[in-house]
């Protein structure tokens, strides 16, 4: 079995701070990590490999430094890694990104394509379904359990108010959520492999995609403007013993007719 896992290197948004003077994001010194949901996707691929035998290829689209994320995936146990990187990809929205990744995946043998549900820097959850569409694959998003009988997959998909169990043929695309599994740490023996293993580098000419669909030109959505959100400013601050403080709160709620 061949499994391709799509990953993204993202800034750890928990560490992103706002410059209080300029009102801009401070990205310097913010660590880059493998997107958390993508780690669950890698883990599930590795579990299928442990149980049924599989070749696991991780793939990412990004700048050259995204190689670090791929090395980490190899150290977790992935077999191969591909970095697709090209200036022509700059400005890609989710549609262009999914078409670019699909253009690379289509060059590979695969039974299952896995991705994280969404990346923490964009939170769109659109690239997984976009890849599935480009490759004409059935998709299951919000995957919280995977069973494989050697031929078909039985997938448990989370819903707001429960779950559904689906039977899916391969090839297919699955997107992982954090309740799917607990990602393993890098393995000592694999860390050495990761050092030696060459990450395969592809550019736009190595993948099967219409050049019109790449980058800014291939992106139907454009960012018109960005800004950091202003907080509305502090209200009244009360620092009193509990009894009096609670009385203030209650009088405010009464005054505004909430209670």
């Amino acid at each position: 079995m061949n499994i391709v896992v799509c990953v993204k290197q993202v800034p750890d948004t928990n560490e992103v701070k706002i410059d209080p003077v300029k009102g801009t994001l401070i990205r310097d010194g913010v660590p880059s990590i493998i997107n958390p949901d993508d780690k669950n996707a890698i883990e599930e691929a590795l579990r299928l490999k442990d149980k049924h035998g599989a070749n696991v290829t991780v793939i990412t689209m990004g700048p050259p430094q995204a190689e670090v994320a791929l090395k980490e995936a190899i150290a977790m146990g992935a077999d191969d890694a591909i970095l697709i990187s090209d200036r022509a990809f700059a400005g890609s929205d989710t549609l262009a990104t999914s078409r670019t990744l699909a253009g690379a995946i289509t060059k590979l043998d695969f039974d299952i394509v896995m991705a994280g549900r969404q990346a923490i820097d964009g939170d769109t959850a659109q690239v997984g379904p976009g890849i599935a569409e480009s490759l004409n694959l059935p998709q299951v998003t919000y995957v919280e359990n995977v069973e494989f009988d050697g031929k078909n997959l039985k997938i448990r998909k989370a819903l707001e108010d429960g779950y559904e169990v689906l039977e899916v043929q391969t090839p297919c695309l699955l997107t992982a959520i954090d309740s799917l599994n607990e990602p393993r740490y890098m393995q000592m023996k694999n860390i050495f492999t990761a050092y030696d293993k060459e990450v395969i580098m592809w550019n736009a000419s190595d993948i099967d995609v219409n050049p019109e669909h790449l980058g800014l030109k291939g992106s139907p959505t454009k960012v018109k403007k960005t800004w950091t959100k202003e907080t509305k400013g502090s209200g009244e601050i009360v620092e009193l013993p509990a009894k009096e403080a609670a009385a203030v709160a209650i009088s405010k709620l009464k005054e505004k007719h909430y209670i």
Partner: peptide, 17 residues
């Protein structure tokens, strides 16, 4: 929409599609 975990707001347009 918010991005970067809510750190940034962005206005997005789709003018040609």
């Amino acid at each position: 929409r918010p991005a970067f975990g809510g750190n940034l707001m962005a206005t997005i347009m789709c003018t040609e599609h």
